[in-house]
């Protein structure tokens, strides 16, 4: 009797964690789609690292460890980092990649300085930093699931409302501007949505691995479809799948951290998609190549012209 209740409670905890991880995977998969299409895959990496000083400052200012306040601090710092990167690129001849690298590492370094400062005053412990770096999916509570659901939901709803505008911005910025859409504002909106996805995801996989959660589901989804809406749905699905899969695998054996397992699950989905997806996949291409070669041989090379069509 006693045994059973422990078992169900365990399962319940696991279920909450799995739901939380699935939600996070879905949100970052959806919003990561635009990051991948805009070739800003690594902006997520920069934002997630740049968030650390924001968390530290939020804590120093308020003395509170309430997730919502820390998330707000993280979002502001991540945002500021993005702004710095874009300004450096716009105003100097330093290229995007270097600007990203500098902001990512130095913001993080500054965060580390603040963290050691907090640590010295005895207000925090090393665990706080570890959580930031690697996430702590295993400690997701019901209230966290609610936060993730509401904030992530709002981000996705906003994205859906401005679906047409954001799609045009990402596909053809110049044309969007010529139609009178304020591309600066839309760009800010899209980046803000990305920041929301990242600061939420930090909790599950941490700063170091966050970029994978944005990139992997979208890259995998891209292989299966040529339609943006389907790609986004698939990315959300793959993200959720990786979240649940990672949670279950890491809970099934001792000492397997959840965040890295989620990332590896997502990576497996990518590998699977790149090899097997119809039309685009490597295997498919290989087969098509050989079939064409065979056909060409059979027809003595005369097929060449009609193949072009």
């Amino acid at each position: 009797m006693e045994n059973l209740s422990i078992l169900t409670r365990l399962d319940y905890t696991l279920m909450i964690v799995a739901i939380g991880a699935a939600l996070l995977g879905a949100v970052s998969g959806t919003l990561g789609t635009y990051a991948v299409l805009r070739r800003q895959s690594l902006l997520g990496d920069a934002i997630s690292h740049a968030a650390l000083p924001g968390i530290a400052i939020a804590f120093l200012l308020t003395g509170s460890k309430t997730p919502l306040i820390l998330v707000l601090g993280a979002a502001i710092a991540g945002w500021l980092g993005t702004l710095f990167i874009l300004s450096i690129v716009r105003l100097t001849r330093i290229k995007y990649d270097s600007a990203l690298g500098i902001i990512l590492s130095t913001f993080f370094g500054f965060g580390l300085v603040l963290h050691t400062l907090i640590q010295r005053t005895g207000n925090a412990n090393q665990a706080g930093l570890d959580t930031f770096l690697f996430g702590q999916a295993a400690t997701i509570l019901e209230s966290d699931v609610l936060t993730i659901g509401i904030l992530g939901g709002i981000a996705i709803v906003i994205m859906l409302v401005f679906w047409k505008e954001l799609k045009l911005l990402v596909f053809d910025e110049g044309f969007a501007a010529s139609l009178g859409f304020p591309i600066r504002a839309l760009d800010i909106l899209l980046t803000s949505l990305l920041v929301i996805a990242i600061v939420l995801g930090l909790q599950a996989v941490g700063a170091v691995l966050m970029s994978a959660m944005l990139v992997a589901p979208a890259v995998a989804a891209r292989q299966w479809t040529d339609k943006l809406s389907v790609m986004m749905l698939l990315a959300a699905g793959f993200g959720a799948l990786a979240g649940v899969g990672g949670t279950i695998i890491s809970s099934s054996a001792s000492r397997i951290p959840t965040g890295p397992t989620i990332v590896l699950c997502a990576t497996v989905v990518v590998g699977f998609s790149i090899v097997l997806a119809p039309n685009r996949g490597l295997l498919w291409n290989r087969l098509r190549y050989q079939r064409n070669k065979r056909n060409l041989k059979m027809l003595g090379g005369q097929l060449f012209q009609s193949e072009e069509q």
Binding site: V170, F171, D172, G180, F181, D226, M231
Partner: peptide, 20 residues
């Protein structure tokens, strides 16, 4: 100026002309 690997089809691109 655009990425032609963007996941969309011909009709969809043409309809973008009506967005304004």
């Amino acid at each position: 100026t655009v990425d032609w690997d963007f996941p969309t089809n011909v009709l969809d691109v043409v309809m973008m002309g009506r967005y304004g």
